Amino acid sequence: MALTLHVETARWRAHQQTVVQQFPGIVPVCKGNGYGFGHERLADEAARFGSDILAVGTTYEAARIKDFFSGDLLVLTPFRLGEEPVPLPDRAIRSVSSVEGVRGLVGARVVVEVMSTMKRHGISEEDLPKLHAAIEDVRLEGFAIHLPLDRTDGSDAVQEVAAWMDRLGRERLPLHTMFVSHLKAEELAQLQQRYPQTRFRARIGTRLWLGDHGATHYTGAVLDVTPVSKGDRFGYRQQKTGGDGHLVVVAGGTSHGVGLEAPKALHGMMPRAKGVARAGLATMNRNQSPFYLDNKQLWFAEPPHMQVSILFVPSDARTPRVGDELKAQLRHTTTTFDRIVDK
């Protein structure tokens, strides 16, 4: 009885191949929780389609995954002076976003991140002249730029990368490889044609692993079903039921990521109105769960527990049985499953 990730394996891998073909030299990204699949599984998939490199989020992830992937490991979090040292093999490549960071990695393999309109981290244009001396003491694997997902100002992603290519070129810095994030296939092709002497490598995670939404889904197993009448008390806080029906205990709780939600950027009146409505219902202890019965979303009876959730099924709905699987709509990047089933 578990929270299960179901994968239509052939379909999932067919989508991977489509993305790999669209982005020659792709750098698959395996960070965080492994996009819901886990690090070991994605390392195996990357090796399966022949990748020579795998990008991870942190040095700690690199240390965990090094025994499951034999190619290069690109650490995306920039090196910081004074950080805790983590033993890594020579095939690990560190990202750096400052001249001081480059100087602190003498002899290491390094990718220098430049500052994009993301304004998250990256070396500035003003610091480029200082790079000449610094990169003499490292093994420079290339430069990188992490672009925003949305461009509400109408700016052009290709032009942003091109502007940095021209800046690096004017400083006579090596331009053999540029790692990029969040470019479309046609945009990458434009850049490759414009700068044929440079190899552009797209770092891709979400589009590669989660681009075909129909290839995966989650289910939670029904563990218990208890009939209740209106006004019955239940649960940790002994709340009263709002009507007749059943309390359904299903696998999947906060330790799996159920009920956890990241803040969202809302645009437009309709999404904002829905957000206000959800907040209003929450003040009345009315929260929709991610679980579905007969394609209808169920309500939490109370906040999810660590490993299970208690749902309320009204009397006019079909009563699930112990052992049934309820489909769940969960965010892959925040969900940890009990098991994975390949189909």
Results as ranks from 00 to 15, higher is better:
Cys30Ser: 11
Ala10Cys: 14
Val19Ala: 09
Leu5His: 06
Gln22Phe: 06
Glu8Lys: 15
Gln21Ala: 13
Leu42Phe: 00
Phe49Ala: 07
Ala47Met: 07
Arg13Lys: 14
Gln17Gly: 08
His39Leu: 07
His15Asp: 05
His15Leu: 06
Asn33Arg: 14
Ile26Lys: 09
Gln17Phe: 09
Val19Tyr: 07
Glu8Leu: 12
Ala43His: 06
Pro28Tyr: 02
His6Arg: 06
Gly34Leu: 03
Val19Gly: 06
Val7Ile: 15
Cys30Lys: 03
Gln17Glu: 13
Gly38Lys: 01
Lys31Ile: 04
Glu45Gln: 04
Thr18Asn: 13
Gly38Thr: 00
Glu40Tyr: 02
Ala10Arg: 15
Gln22Arg: 15
Glu45Trp: 11
Phe37Leu: 08
Val19Thr: 13
Ile26Arg: 08
Phe49Pro: 04
His15Phe: 10
Thr9Phe: 06
Ala14Met: 08
Gln21Thr: 12
Phe23Val: 05
Phe37Cys: 04
Glu8Gln: 15
Asn33Ile: 10
Asn33Trp: 07
Phe37Glu: 06
Arg13Gln: 15
Lys31Val: 02
Ala46Ile: 01
Ala14Gly: 12
Val19Leu: 12
Arg48Pro: 01
Ala46Trp: 01
Val19Cys: 09
His6Pro: 02
Leu42Ile: 04
Asp44Val: 09
Gly34Ser: 07
Glu40Leu: 08
His39Tyr: 01
Gly25Tyr: 06
Pro24Phe: 09
Ile26His: 09
Arg13Asn: 11
Pro24Trp: 08
Thr9Met: 11
Cys30Ala: 10
Arg48Phe: 12
Leu5Phe: 03
Trp12Ala: 14
Thr9Tyr: 08
Gly36Phe: 10
Arg41Met: 07
Gln22Tyr: 09
Arg11Tyr: 10
Glu40Val: 13
Gly38Val: 01
Arg13Phe: 13
Gln17Thr: 11
Gly32Thr: 03
Ile26Gln: 09
Phe23Met: 06
Ala14Lys: 14
Val19Trp: 08
Trp12His: 14
His39Thr: 00
Lys31Gly: 03
Arg11Ile: 12
Trp12Leu: 12
Arg48Ala: 15
Phe23His: 10
Tyr35Phe: 12
His6Met: 03
Ala43Phe: 02
His6Gly: 03
Gly32Ile: 01
Gln21Ser: 14
Phe49Gly: 06
Lys31Met: 06
Ala46Met: 01
Arg13Asp: 12
Val20Trp: 11
Gln17Ser: 11
Pro24Cys: 08
Glu45Arg: 08
Arg41Thr: 06
Arg13Ser: 09
Trp12Phe: 11
Leu42Val: 00
Thr9Lys: 13
Lys31His: 05
Val7Ala: 13
Gln17His: 11
Gln17Pro: 05
Asp44Met: 06
Trp12Ser: 10
His15Ala: 05
Ala14Pro: 05
Pro24Arg: 10
Arg48His: 14
Pro28Thr: 03
His15Pro: 05
Pro28Phe: 01
Asn33Val: 10
Gly34Pro: 00
Tyr35Trp: 09
Pro28Glu: 03
Lys31Asp: 05
